[in-house]
Every structure is written in structure tokens, then in C-alpha cells.
């Protein structure tokens, strides 16, 4: 029963949404289904928070490796939870807006969370450089083609690229770096992306059909097939 019911629900909801795509009077059902999912997600947040507390408490009580980090996690978790839930320091009191400017909750988010998140994101610049260095080494024919194409794309996006081939006569302007950049992006790159997109679309339909028909059901607790 605990496997048949999820399968039946998947089948009914899945096919309802597929039919709603082609039948305008049913399109409301697809929207409602998304709302049901959001409602379930709200309750799941409690589950997530509970799991976080449990895992970190176990780590602290058993003095597992790096247990000190678990203390930091729990202190941060409860601190933000309390100032957000009880609206500590909120000028509007418990009826005030939770993220009103000037409240501790707002300050923690704006002056701690946002800069820390931006710091993580900015690491991407360095990682792109290190990944490019490895990827663009001309160790074989494919990597050499990648190197040449990437160089043209990078140069084409800079004024230096324009300056580099400005001497080329108008009759051969296709060979100017900005034009080569445009060609690479709009023809081979776009064609490749669309081919991948078509493949993904077919993969999604095929996989969804397997799930809806119950051929693939390992995600509901049965080894697929």
C-alpha cells in the first residue's frame, strides 16, 4: 500500500497536468497542484530544521570531529530563528513586518548573510580562471579547438579584439574578431545548445512517462523496474 498509493497519486496528478497542457478549462488544476506542493514544502521546512538540530546535537554530544563548528551552526540557527520568530527589537512589535529595516533580523540578513553569500559567489571568478587554465591547455586536437574558440570569444568581447583586426578590409570583415565571435556564438554554439535542448526535452518526456507508468519507481522506495 505504501508503494501503490504514491504510484497512484503520481499517475493521477501527472496525467492531469499533461492533459491540462492541452485542455484550457483544466489549466487551473495545474496551478492548484503547484500550490499544494508549496503547502507541503512549508511543513517540510520544519522537518529540515529538526534534522539540522538533531545532526549537530549528536555531533556535539558525541564530540565528533570538528564538533565546535556544530556549536556555531546551532547558535546561528537559534539566534536568527528567535529574532525572526519573536520579532526581537522590531519597532512594530509582534505585529510589525519581520524584515522591517532597522530590526536585528534585517541587520543580520543585510550586514552578515548578504556579504558572506557574495563572498562565496565571488570565489567563482578565481575558480573560472583555474578551470579555464586546465581546460584550455592544447593537449589534444579537441582541446586545441576549444582553446582557439575560447580565445576568439574572449577577445571578441573586448575593445582590444576590435582593435586587433581593425586593419582587415571591409570585403573580408567576416574575419574580424568581433564578427568571428558573433558567428561562433550564433551558429555553432547555438546549434549545439539547441541539439542538447531537444535531447533534454525528449529525455524529460521519456523519463516522465517511465515514472508515470510506474516502470521507474526507485524514487518511491522500490528498486526500479
Amino acid at each position: 500500500m505504501n508503494r501503490t498509493l504514491p504510484f497512484l497519486l503520481t499517475f493521477i496528478v501527472g496525467f492531469t497536468i499533461v492533459i491540462a497542457t492541452f485542455s484550457p478549462p483544466l489549466d487551473r488544476l495545474a496551478v492548484d497542484t503547484a500550490v499544494f506542493f508549496s503547502i507541503i514544502a512549508v511543513f517540510a521546512m520544519i522537518l529540515g530544521g529538526g534534522n539540522l538540530v538533531k545532526i549537530n546535537l549528536v555531533k556535539i554530544t558525541r564530540r565528533q570531529r570538528d564538533w565546535q563548528f556544530a556549536i556555531v551552526t546551532l547558535v546561528g540557527f537559534f539566534f536568527v530563528l528567535i529574532i525572526g520568530l519573536f520579532k526581537v527589537g522590531n519597532p512594530g512589535g509582534v505585529t510589525g513586518q519581520v524584515d522591517a529595516p532597522g530590526t536585528p533580523f534585517f541587520d543580520v540578513y543585510t550586514y552578515v548573510f548578504v556579504p558572506v553569500g557574495a563572498t562565496m559567489y565571488s570565489l567563482l571568478a578565481f575558480f573560472i580562471a583555474s578551470a579555464s587554465y586546465r581546460a584550455f591547455r592544447a593537449k589534444n586536437r579537441e582541446a586545441t579547438i576549444l582553446l582557439i574558440a575560447a580565445s576568439i570569444i574572449m577577445l571578441g568581447a573586448t575593445p582590444f579584439g576590435t582593435m586587433l583586426t581593425a586593419w582587415i578590409p571591409d570585403s573580408l570583415d567576416i574575419f574580424e574578431v568581433p564578427n568571428l565571435h558573433f558567428f561562433l556564438m550564433s551558429s555553432p554554439n547555438l546549434a549545439g545548445q539547441r541539439a542538447i535542448m531537444i535531447g533534454i526535452a525528449l529525455g524529460v518526456i521519456s523519463y516522465s512517462l517511465r515514472v508515470l507508468l510506474g516502470v521507474e519507481r526507485s524514487h518511491i522506495g522500490k528498486d526500479g523496474g
Binding site: 535531447g199 533534454i200 529525455g203 524529460v204 521519456s206 517511465r210 521507474e216 526500479g224 523496474g225
Partner: peptide, 20 residues
Amino acid sequence: GEELYAASAYLSREPVLLGS
């Protein structure tokens, strides 16, 4: 892309999944 969706069929080698 699509290889992500094909992976389960490859891993199981089950004919039913390979059929899709």
C-alpha cells in the same frame, strides 16, 4: 543533458528501461 535521464536505465541494464 539527456544522459542524466538515461543514467538509471544504463545502471540497471533492465531491458524495459533501455527500451525507452
